[in-house]
């Protein structure tokens, strides 16, 4: 039989994490699927579902602080998230369907670390900071150095993800979220992208960030394409260069959902689509 520790206080959770080898469960929408598809349950489980302090959303200066247990439904309905991180709302709306949105958490999506996790390109593009806690205190890790490989993270055994610090989207900034899934709902991404840019009246790109999922072993930033575009003026030629650059920069594979070729072409098309509107 498994032991489940259901905790209501962060400190309790930290204590258990420091003393025992436990698997954390939040909304369970990833974990329960693993277990029902044949993986055996870990002996000891830490249930954090009742850690209500991880459900807060707060403004902190230029940042929005979002607790790791926030569900997608919560994100979709929160006025501050709608205003300061519309892309995160767009992403949340595409996740599963309402039953999953009611239960799945942002923290679960991050720690689960699937390259197809739909919130992740947004977090990558926004350079969010992760807040990680343990008995030793709280540390901040830039999201873009959180993953070390396919489903590998820097999170230590005794640590819990507390939440994210997301820089508020600026007034002049435009962001877009594109998900290309297998169907209109309950779909896993074949390509998922978050774009963020500030483009001035002369069509000069003052700033751009591109986060991509499902096209590499982890969520990635398209740094080469960003370098190409930063400071450049949007022209037909530039768009074509960006299309080529981005589709070369990613490292997608053939799998049961799609093909490498399709992923490259579509990724290229989508940056063109994003840039065309300016």
């Amino acid at each position: 039989m498994n032991t489940v520790y259901s905790v209501k206080e962060l400190n309790e959770a930290y204590k258990i994490l420091s003393q025992e080898s436990v698997k954390v469960i939040a909304g369970g929408t990833d974990l329960m699927v693993f277990y029902s598809s044949g993986l055996s349950l870990p002996k000891k489980i830490l249930d954090i579902w009742q850690l209500n302090e991880l459900r807060n959303i707060n403004e902190e200066g230029d940042y929005l602080k979002i607790g790791s247990l926030c569900t997608y439904t919560q994100l979709i309905n929160d006025e501050r998230v709608k205003h300061f991180a519309p892309c995160l709302v767009s992403a949340s709306k595409t996740i599963g369907a309402v039953q999953i949105q009611n239960r799945g958490t942002l923290g679960g999506n991050i720690v689960n670390g699937s390259p197809a996790g739909d919130s992740l390109p947004v977090l990558a593009a926004f350079d969010v900071k992760l807040e990680i806690g343990s008995l030793n205190g709280i540390r901040q890790v830039p999201f873009n150095s959180f993953y070390t490989g396919y489903r590998q993270t820097v999170l230590a055994e005794n640590e819990l993800l507390l939440g994210i610090l997301l820089p508020k989207q600026k007034d002049r900034e435009k962001s877009e979220f594109y998900k290309v899934g297998t169907r209109a709902a309950q779909a896993i991404s074949k390509v998922v992208i978050a774009f963020r840019a500030i483009v001035n009246a002369e069509k000069k790109i003052e700033f751009i960030a591109i986060g991509l999922g499902s096209v590499a072993p982890t969520v990635i930033r398209a740094t080469k394409t960003e370098t190409l575009l930063n400071g450049a003026e949007i022209t037909f030629d530039l768009i074509e260069q960006a299309r080529v650059q981005l589709s070369q920069e990613i490292v997608p594979i053939d799998d049961i959902r799609s093909t490498e070729h399709y992923r490259r072409v579509v990724t290229g098309n989508l940056i063109a689509k994003f840039l065309r509107v300016f």
């Binding site: 297998t182 169907r183 209109a184 709902a185 309950q186 896993i188 049961i256 959902r257």
Partner: peptide, 22 residues
């Protein structure tokens, strides 16, 4: 989807039927 006579997508998550939104 098959590999060596085995079905790779024997689940609802990867054998894709239309939802009400499709």
């Amino acid at each position: 989807v098959w590999r060596d006579g085995k079905i790779l997508n024997n689940r609802f998550t990867n054998y894709i039927i239309p939802t009400a939104l499709d």
